[in-house]
């Protein structure tokens, strides 16, 4: 997956714990864990909006595009 989720980096920068963030944005810790570990298939705009508001950051601070050589068409 060429999209990386840097949520743990932002959490460390803001010195916030996962369960605090989960509580504030209104999702379960299990779902937040899925998001952090990159297992999520998609993220809702409403969730992204809530995360950005709580962590006071931009979507680009959380999501990063990394080129995957396997996905490059020949």
């Amino acid at each position: 997956m060429p999209i990386l989720v840097n949520l743990d980096v932002m959490l460390a920068k803001r010195k916030m714990k996962s369960n605090e963030l989960a509580e504030q944005i209104g999702i379960t810790t299990a779902n937040l864990s899925i998001l952090k570990t990159g297992k999520a298939k998609a993220i809702r705009f409403s969730t992204l909006d809530a995360i950005c508001k709580v962590l006071n950051c931009q979507p680009g601070d959380i999501l990063e595009f990394v080129e995957d050589n396997n996905d490059v068409p020949e």
């Binding site: 779902n31 937040l32 899925i34 998001l35 999520a40 298939k41 998609a42 993220i43 809702r44």
Partner: peptide, 8 residues
């Protein structure tokens, strides 16, 4: 359904 469940 799987995709929906993994959409956070």
């Amino acid at each position: 359904e799987q995709e929906n469940q993994l959409t956070i």
